[in-house]
Amino acid sequence: MPTMRSTTFRVGGDLKVRRLGFGAMQLPTDPGPAREASVRVARRAVELGVTLIDTAHLYGGGANEELLAEALHPYPEDLLVTTKVGVARTGGEWRLDGRPEVLREQVDHALRRLRVERIELLQLHRIDPETPLADQVGALRDLRDAGKIGRIGLSEISVTELDEARQIVDIASVQNRYSLLDREHEPVLVACEAAGIAFLPWRPVAGAATGAPDGLTAVAAELAATPAQVALAWLLDRSPVVLPIPGTARVDHLEENVAAADLHLDAAQRERLDRLPGRA
């Protein structure tokens, strides 16, 4: 009998989304056929039942946010578009910038670009080491209290940083790099699971799409699936708080990724995958 896994999760305890989301980072935004294809991919994701789409100010300086609004606004009631702030372009280079005034400005820009009155989940893209953590998280708390954002998330953090942030404000999500073959942030996932915090792994199929190890390709062959689909199914089985956000600019890859939600691994297959050497 396959293990039944939950297909949904409530971010922050109340915001229900389907666990397999979509990362919009790879969508081209320049005018022309590539942008038109990006619009089709975003719309197809929603058609396939995706209710969590991830973007960021960093992705084209807000161009990715504008693309999603063009493709999907007015948004379906059950769609969560989450964005990230805290990286700014200075002197032609992108740098971490978590100063409260920068975070406030980027949130205002995101509201305008996404055409919403409130961002239901706003994530700090990185912690700026030159700005006190309390100032960065405190600024997001103030924006939440002002009604501009609904819930607060963090990205690329340690367990210690998560603990420090939670002393200041409720944290609804964490977005760290994590996959079947890259488990460096396993302790952070464990901490999120214990606290009921959504864990959004980015690069969720790293090492699986190309050059997958024999153990992964063998399980994929048994299931008549792709290695990337198996890697996503493993993530969905790993913990009920895991919300993978695979990204692509192609409709066929999108459809393959979404289909992974219906792929079931048996206990023996999961055990074999667990034993694969994940970088930790």
Rank of each mutant, 00 (worst) to 15 (best):
residue 102 V to C: 03
residue 87 V to H: 13
residue 79 L to W: 07
residue 176 N to M: 05
residue 143 L to P: 07
residue 278 G to Q: 11
residue 77 E to D: 15
residue 43 R to W: 01
residue 138 G to Y: 02
residue 66 E to C: 09
residue 75 Y to G: 07
residue 272 R to F: 01
residue 165 A to F: 00
residue 238 R to L: 14
residue 256 E to M: 08
residue 142 D to L: 09
residue 275 R to S: 14
residue 64 N to M: 06
residue 56 A to H: 06
residue 230 V to G: 06
residue 148 K to F: 02
residue 113 R to Y: 04
residue 20 L to I: 06
residue 226 T to R: 14
residue 237 D to G: 13
residue 41 V to H: 03
residue 277 P to R: 08
residue 79 L to C: 07
residue 13 G to N: 07
residue 121 L to F: 07
residue 180 L to P: 10
residue 7 T to V: 03
residue 228 A to P: 11
residue 68 L to A: 13
residue 163 D to W: 01
residue 69 A to Y: 04
residue 196 G to T: 04
residue 201 P to H: 10
residue 209 A to E: 14
residue 164 E to R: 15
residue 201 P to G: 13
residue 84 K to E: 09
residue 8 T to L: 01
residue 62 G to F: 07
residue 181 L to I: 12
residue 172 A to K: 02
residue 206 A to H: 04
residue 49 G to I: 00
residue 260 A to F: 03
residue 50 V to A: 11
residue 214 D to F: 03
residue 263 L to Q: 13
residue 68 L to S: 13
residue 185 H to P: 00
residue 215 G to S: 12
residue 207 G to C: 09
residue 202 W to I: 12
residue 63 A to L: 15
residue 67 L to A: 12
residue 52 L to T: 02
residue 196 G to D: 06
residue 208 A to L: 11
residue 187 P to Q: 06
residue 173 S to D: 11
residue 134 A to G: 02
residue 120 E to W: 00
residue 75 Y to E: 12
residue 278 G to K: 09
residue 266 D to I: 10
residue 207 G to M: 10
residue 191 A to H: 04
residue 72 L to C: 03
residue 148 K to D: 10
residue 245 I to D: 14
residue 136 Q to K: 04
residue 121 L to H: 08
residue 269 Q to I: 08
residue 193 E to P: 05
residue 68 L to G: 13
residue 210 T to H: 13
residue 263 L to M: 11
residue 18 R to P: 00
residue 5 R to K: 12
residue 8 T to F: 01
residue 251 V to F: 01
residue 208 A to F: 06
residue 172 A to S: 14
residue 127 I to R: 11
residue 168 I to N: 03
residue 192 C to K: 02
residue 82 T to F: 05
residue 249 A to D: 15
residue 141 R to A: 15
residue 179 S to P: 03
residue 222 E to A: 14
residue 9 F to W: 13
residue 123 Q to T: 13
residue 124 L to H: 02
residue 82 T to S: 15
